[in-house]
Design a protein around this nucleic acid. Sequence first.
DNA 1: GGCGGGGTTTACAACGATGTAACTGTCACG
DNA 2: CGTGACAGTTACATCGTTGTAAACCCCGCC
Lengths: 358, 358
Amino acid sequence: MKVRLRDVADRAGVSVKTVSNVVNDYVHVAPATRSHVQALLDEMGYRPNLSARSLRVGRTGVIALALPELDNPYFAELAGFVVEAAEENGWTVLIDQTDGLRERELFVTAGFRHQLIDGVILSPVALGAEDLVGRGPGDVPLVLLGEKIAEGPADHVAVDNVAAARTATEHLLSRGRTRIAVIGDEPGPDRQSGVAGLRRRGWEEALAAATLPVDEQLVACVQSYQREEGARAMTALLRRGAAPDGVFCFNDTLALGALRALADHRLRAPEDVAVVGIDDIEDGRYSVPTLTTVAPDKEGIARTAVGMLAERLAPGADGIPPRDLRAPCRLVVRESTRGPAGRAQSRTAGREGRHLRR
Amino acid sequence: MKVRLRDVADRAGVSVKTVSNVVNDYVHVAPATRSHVQALLDEMGYRPNLSARSLRVGRTGVIALALPELDNPYFAELAGFVVEAAEENGWTVLIDQTDGLRERELFVTAGFRHQLIDGVILSPVALGAEDLVGRGPGDVPLVLLGEKIAEGPADHVAVDNVAAARTATEHLLSRGRTRIAVIGDEPGPDRQSGVAGLRRRGWEEALAAATLPVDEQLVACVQSYQREEGARAMTALLRRGAAPDGVFCFNDTLALGALRALADHRLRAPEDVAVVGIDDIEDGRYSVPTLTTVAPDKEGIARTAVGMLAERLAPGADGIPPRDLRAPCRLVVRESTRGPAGRAQSRTAGREGRHLRR
DNA sequence: GGCGGGGTTTACAACGATGTAACTGTCACG
DNA sequence: CGTGACAGTTACATCGTTGTAAACCCCGCC
């Protein structure tokens, strides 16, 4: 059933290596031999055994993408872009779900599926820079996504979280809101370095620039970045008395949860409370109301990450010091801070991004 | 940097095979030898070269999951479950995005990444049963998801689309709706066999059982199953004059798009138009209004698919004829057909499914 | 006619792991 | 004391592919 070089070689009456040469477009093959062998290759349906090839050449053409969870739309969309970018490099993507568990993240960086993957793109949740010391040129090339580990020993791509958060907050301020809450702070050890800490800092900076005080009553913590928690946090904020007139959620799923909670309390966005998120996930373009958000350049992030891996894998790239790139992001204003659009405008909702690949 | 069996064997003063035996928990190894070798394995940080191992044993422990698109929440959630189920079998999942393209789907079934993957789970969009003739026991084991190719030459898992659609329609009927539209029909060659055809048939059956006529004015076609198309189709329905009082959308993303279009037209769900979808995606639990849906057992589908692959890969399973399994689904009633819940009730929204893996 | 130099082809040895079969011992048993 | 049985260990071949270096052939040139 399986056709090997050997089988083709036997029938063609040439050596195995010659067939191999044809397969690999080696230059010095006589035209007659080439076409003869090629015909047999096609006829017999030869497919190279990639295990054997990779044992020999040390590359598999597979890279791993390790994400906390796939059912978070942000990661799902990002994964889609990574798969696309990888494909342009002739790579296939193996996806791993870490669930944000330290153990699994460590496993991934340590060379998960040893020798079966050429490189790893990881979006760490639990890992800190200290977990990566001791990584050397002998380890699998690693590219980190997101803010958790900046200035570590590995390549790194992220949005500028502080700037993004400031943009979101400033937008709420520009809409005349003065009691601006945040949803998404995370109590815990890495309050400074984590995503939450950075986004919170952006919020504080924007408030300070507007000479507004930081009111701890307006900070809602969450356990995870999912809709459920956003709804819970919003409800908690509303219960605390003096309600906010604007909420900056640390991501879109939290924001969608918050919108849902507002609806439960018969409050309207943006009239009663204006809501902003970060991520620009597809859902936010069709929610009721549509969600204002700070959109990271997901495609750019994916391409950059894949590109960095490509460079690491190129020969003689061992010496390159770890790089740290920022991806741009832009504000996308929708109904949750602007109010319902007219019909003409609203019908174009959702056309902002790419869609419908086919 | 890389540690091979050979390296460990040299330092331990034993043969390569003995080290291999320790690694693989072979029984006949003297306890003293075992602990000695094990200590060295740990110290030197040995990791098996999976390329070499798979060349030898013919298995890689990697299965491929080929989906039309990852940014559709239904597929993203399904992918998450497949990754989980695969992991319990010690497998890793390689994800491929077919974009619903025939060419790519064919490529996948033909043994994509030859010898690097042990099996394939494919959710076909463009492929028909005729494309799979000629698959033999020598090919990669294949499990199909979804309705496109029933009774083909490969294993198959799907929800009973006709029943699901009937359930959805009957629910609308039970809420007193009589002008029930559908969104999601697809004009084209496989009108009968495709998902759209089956779901449409369920709708017709339910109407017939209620002695209601099928009104072609109430059928809205789409180009894809995304929010944008749902919104477009809903708008089209509203423009056609006699508006529907209920809409059955062939999936949840279409339904969310439809809800959005209703909001644009200042219409309320369910008061003016009741809306039902299929898929039970996370977004529908938090949308405004929350979305009534027919929920397939995604986790069950994933486990079944992985389980079928497992059986195919078990020794001596070549003879098993292709199997065809149906996954159950159940109606989940939410606001889009029931009206807003009281506060106490609404606070439990979203707790229906599993959440928060960590 | 021998020699050098190319294009073309080949034999052989890897890559790192594991299955097979054979080789040691050691012990029990007749 | 010879014989088996069996635990423990090993040498060797093998999986399918590709890099290396050498062989081969044909041609032109001295």
